[in-house]
Design a protein around this nucleic acid. Sequence first.
DNA 1: TATAAAATCGCCCTAAAGTATGAGGCGAAA
DNA 2: TTTCGCCTCATACTTTAGGGCGATTTTATA
Lengths: 158, 158
Amino acid sequence: MATRNLFSKHKSTILYGTSLAILLFLLRWLELRFIIFDHAFEIYIGAIAIIFTALGIWLAIKLTKPKIERVVVEKEVYIEKSNGFNFNEAEMTRLGVSRRELEVLQLMADGLSNNEIAARLFVSLNTIKTHASNLFIKLDVSRRTQAIEKAKRIHLIP
Amino acid sequence: MATRNLFSKHKSTILYGTSLAILLFLLRWLELRFIIFDHAFEIYIGAIAIIFTALGIWLAIKLTKPKIERVVVEKEVYIEKSNGFNFNEAEMTRLGVSRRELEVLQLMADGLSNNEIAARLFVSLNTIKTHASNLFIKLDVSRRTQAIEKAKRIHLIP
DNA sequence: TATAAAATCGCCCTAAAGTATGAGGCGAAA
DNA sequence: TTTCGCCTCATACTTTAGGGCGATTTTATA
């Protein structure tokens, strides 16, 4: 048998090699073991530190109230544009202002004189004066400018 | 000597008692030491655990991003009314209207008579009349009501 | 300090606004 | 039909507004 012959021939060599390998392995293992043993405590402490840090983080996240930062965003809501005029009929009724008087009031607010209003409405100046006087009494004012100001304020005219 | 005699007489007894006391003390000390030694590791680990839990909590609190909550607040904006009046200074400059004249104009729009305006501004009636006249020329109108209407229209007054 | 613009005031006169009072016509509601 | 509110108009009167002068004083600015 050639194989057996070969084994016998190199027996010592093989044994030596194997022994060396085992020895190296042992040394390696011992070295590793030595390192582990040497640093086992620190590694353990490190592990504990990591685990409890994580626990602390988890606890903080789970048990503390979530941080809420309020950002107030102002949303502009445009109400009643300039051209949108809603006539206050209730106030007109309450004050007893007649339609004709309101008409005169509007023209007064437009800057027309009593004469111009009279011409516009095809009536006499005296009629306008009467309307104006009655208006002033009803609006509780004494001048056309006051009447205009108040009428605008209480939404009788735009 | 009576004392020396007594010591010699009870020498063995005293020695025995002393020995016993020392032994007991040693045992006690050993026991204490044993307990400490026995739990030193756990105490250390416990301390580490507590410290790093605290660290974790601190980290979580410090480093977590706050949750941003947007609160939309509706803000009512009244155009061309009480809220939004933007004074047209350019037009005032263009027409050459002075500050005093503007003041008079505003009071006219409030419904005050020339006499009342004069009293309000501590000047004579004639002064107000002059201001009014100059205003009418600058605004190219002929009546206070027209002046008010135009002034509001070109945003000299609210 | 010179100068221009603004603010102040006065007087005279006319126009417009506002007050007071009375009265006639007209349509809706009692 | 009568009452009532609204619109109309008128007269007489007072007050305020406005125009047209002129003038002095502040104030800001070059």
